[in-house]
Amino acid sequence: MENNLKFNNLTQLYQYLDDLVANDASSDELFASSYLRGFISLSASQFGDESQALTTALANDITEKVQAARTELSPDDRIIVKQYWAELSQAFTA
Rank of each mutant, 00 (worst) to 15 (best):
T63Q: 09
V66Q: 01
L54Q: 02
F39G: 02
L54V: 12
M1G: 12
E50W: 08
V66T: 08
K82C: 03
S41Q: 14
L5F: 12
Y35H: 04
Y35R: 04
A25M: 06
S45P: 02
N60Y: 05
A32E: 01
Y84T: 04
Y35K: 03
V66M: 03
N8V: 13
Y84W: 11
L13H: 01
F7L: 04
F7P: 01
L58D: 03
N8I: 12
S41K: 14
N3S: 15
N8T: 15
F31S: 01
A91Q: 03
E2M: 10
S74R: 01
T93I: 15
A69N: 07
M1A: 15
L42G: 05
F39R: 02
N8G: 14
N3A: 15
A32S: 09
L5P: 00
A91C: 07
D28G: 04
F47A: 09
A22F: 10
A57V: 14
D19I: 09
L17N: 02
T71C: 03
N60D: 14
I40L: 09
L36E: 10
Y84C: 08
Q83D: 11
G48N: 14
E29M: 07
G48S: 07
S43N: 04
F39P: 00
I80P: 00
L17T: 12
Q15A: 14
E29Y: 04
T56N: 10
D76A: 02
A25W: 03
D18P: 00
D19A: 08
R70A: 13
K6S: 15
D24P: 00
V81K: 00
V81M: 02
K6D: 10
L10W: 04
L13M: 05
R70K: 11
D28Q: 05
E64I: 12
L10M: 12
D28E: 10
S45Q: 09
D61R: 02
S26T: 12
P75F: 06
Y16H: 10
A59P: 01
R37Q: 14
D61I: 06
V21Y: 11
L54P: 01
